[in-house]
Design a protein around this nucleic acid. Structure first.
Length: 425
RNA sequence: GGAGAGGUGGCUGAGUGGUCGAAAGCAGCGGUUUGCUAAACCGUCGUAGGGGGAAACUUCUACCGGAGGUUCGAAUCCUCUCCUCUCCGCCA
């Protein structure tokens, strides 16, 4: 959500910047609708002022014992007129809000111009993919073979795009969660939170999933509760409609949650394995900062996600998304992509974004800056997607005999050095 | 699930139909005093939107959990709803 007056006064410049995102952005209608709306507001408010004035006079007259029947009739008539004007304002306002809500964030000046993922720019590459003297297997073969991953049973219990983890597979997932949270809280300065896994629609509106992306979400029937698609939603909304003190910032939080996504429209993509599931686990980092510090904090946050991969010994590269590939709310996004031998490619495992004040404005997250309150900047990033890290470990640490070496840093959490075939149950 | 109490500005908290955008206190901001700090004192101090103004500012409108309603007029009355607290029941 943009700041209205800023939008008005910087119209041309903003339109130019937004054009770099590609896609049709209806800015032509903006001005016409804006002035129409303002005229309607003005008209309604003039009438209201008159009405208020008359009501006050009636009060005065009544106390003096005068008869006010005529005047009351007049005001009553005005009330009807006001009601119809208000209706018109509301209709225009809704139209206006819809237009405004559909306008994406302005890309930061450092974001490369481009149309699609192909124009993203690699900023660094860390670690070398291991050279294997055998044909690497994909996790969807390795997992079931080891008896740690079960798609048939998950399909029976729930349906497609769900997984059942067994034995060491389940423990590996849990070990990763603990390793991530411990590293963030002990080494990266985050405070751990455990939020609700369901949120109301106001929260989803605050972070921008609603109203546009309802189709991507699961809703609980006969309620206003939705399953969270990411911890970003409950954690960012912790401070919704609050005023923070400047000294509190930056605030850095991390949270483990399952995430639920309908994956509508992704039919045929990543159908094999656990890369794209309706439910997956994730540790998310969320920051609230002052405007002038948000880009430093974005770099740190991205580094915190990368640090996990470094500690795990997983090769990755980091790309900065181009203007055409960024999410609508983001001003700048880094994607971290981990090497997957089974697919012979890098695959997104974390997405770290600075939303500047775009979410904060929607969610009313402010801080006191001297005399004034100002919108904070919000940031978030995966640290990391647990399921995809699980895949990366299984595939990168696989051995010729199908067993998987447990990375050093996970051994205290796993209590074993090698994952070998489980007894079939 | 049943019974009751309550939701007011950044915070605490008064206000039961008319001049209440809302007392008072705290915090904040500006100042006086002061060797420094603290205290004291004076002043100032809500948010959003519309109009006017280069600006300081000014004027109007809306907002006392949310949505409706009654009334010439609602923080105040009515209905629904959400949330918090207390007690009972149930439950991991």
């Amino acid at each position: 959500m943009h700041d209205l007056s800023f939008f008005r006064t910087n119209f041309e410049r903003i339109a130019e910047r937004l054009a770099t995102r590609g896609g049709a952005i209806n800015l032509e209608g903006f001005r016409a609708l804006d002035s129409e709306r303002r005229a309607a507001i003005s008209q309604a408010e003039q009438l209201k002022a008159l009405k208020n004035q008359h009501s006050q006079e009636i009060g005065k007259l009544k106390r003096e014992g005068a008869d006010t029947t005529e005047r009351q009739k007049e005001v009553r008539a005005a009330t009807e007129q006001i009601a119809s004007l208000d209706e018109r304002v509301a209709a225009l306002d809704a139209q206006f809000q819809e237009l405004l809500a559909g306008i994406p964030n302005i890309p930061h000046e450092s974001v490369p111009l481009g149309r699609s993922a192909e124009d993203n720019v690699e900023v660094r590459r860390v670690g070398e993919p291991r050279t294997l003297d055998f044909e690497p297997q994909a996790h969807w073969d390795l997992g079931p073979a080891l008896g740690i991953l079960d798609f048939e049973r998950a399909g029976k219990i729930t349906g497609a795009r769900f997984a059942l983890y067994w034995g060491a597979g389940a423990r590996l997932e849990r070990a990763l969660v603990n390793f991530f949270l411990d590293t963030h809280t002990r080494h990266h300065g985050y405070t751990e939170v455990l939020p609700p896994f369901m949120v109301n629609s106001a929260s989803l509106y605050g972070t921008g999933q609603l109203p546009k992306f309802a189709a991507d979400l699961f809703k609980i029937e006969a309620s206003d509760f939705w399953l969270i698609p990411t911890a970003e939603v409950p954690v960012t909304n912790i401070y919704r409609d609050e005023v923070l003190e400047a000294e509190q910032l930056p605030i850095a939080l991390c949270a483990y949650t399952p995430c639920f996504r309908s994956e509508a429209g992704s039919y045929g993509r990543d159908v094999r394995g656990i890369i794209r599931q309706h439910q997956f686990q994730k540790v998310e980092m969320v920051k609230f900062t002052r405007p002038e510090q948000s880009y430093d904090e974005l770099d740190k946050l991205t580094g915190d996600a990368e640090d996990l991969l470094i500690r795990l010994g997983l090769p990755f590269r980091t790309v900065v998304l181009c203007t055409g590939d960024m999410g609508a709310s983001s001003a700048k996004t880094y994607d971290i992509e981990v090497w997957l031998p089974g697919q012979n490619n890098y695959k997104e495992i974390s997405s770290c974004s600075n939303f500047e004040a775009f979410q904060a404005r929607r969610a009313g997250i402010r801080f006191r800056n001297g005399k004034k309150t100002e919108f904070a900047h919000t940031l978030n990033g995966s640290g990391l997607a647990v399921g995809r890290t699980w895949v990366a470990i299984i595939e990168n640490y696989q051995q010729k005999d199908g067993s998987v070496i447990v990375p050093e840093v996970l051994r205290p959490y796993m209590n074993e050095e090698v994952i070998r075939p489980e007894r079939k149950l």
